[in-house]
């Protein structure tokens, strides 16, 4: 048996609104993942509500600055620090910002 899941593409300006919607239905943030693309990055936000696996894709350019969702989902801080440190994605207002000291790595933004 294979799990079906939703993957919806949204604009980065709707990120906080989407997070609020997810919190409103009682979903938990289960992961955030970044993928390098030709023009920038794909950001994949995943939520779980009961057994429903809900995913949102946001495509951004290298220079786009996004807002943190730590004010809505406090557990986002680890994912967002990872995105910032490994991919060089600009994120403002992270509740606990490690300033690129989350991982002990020799190469700056290895996935960029």
């Amino acid at each position: 048996m294979r799990e079906d899941y939703k993957l919806t593409t949204i604009d980065f300006s709707n990120l906080s609104l989407m997070a609020l919607d997810m919190k409103g239905i009682g979903a938990r943030l289960s992961q955030i993942c970044s993928v390098r693309t030709k023009d920038g990055f794909d950001l994949l936000y995943s939520f779980v509500k009961d057994y429903e696996f809900i995913n949102y894709k946001i495509s951004i350019n290298e220079d786009t600055e996004i807002e943190s969702i730590t004010a809505i989902f406090p557990n986002a801080f680890l994912y967002e620090n990872e995105m910032s440190e490994l991919f060089g994605i600009k994120i403002k207002y992270i509740a606990l910002d490690y300033k690129n000291k989350l991982y002990d790595i020799a190469v700056e933004t290895p996935f960029k």
Binding site: Y103, D104, I105, F111
Partner: peptide, 13 residues
């Protein structure tokens, strides 16, 4: 305040 990264091996890379 947690810190990880002490044994990061870059597996995903």
């Amino acid at each position: 305040i947690p810190s990880i990264g002490f044994i990061h091996r870059g597996l995903e890379k």
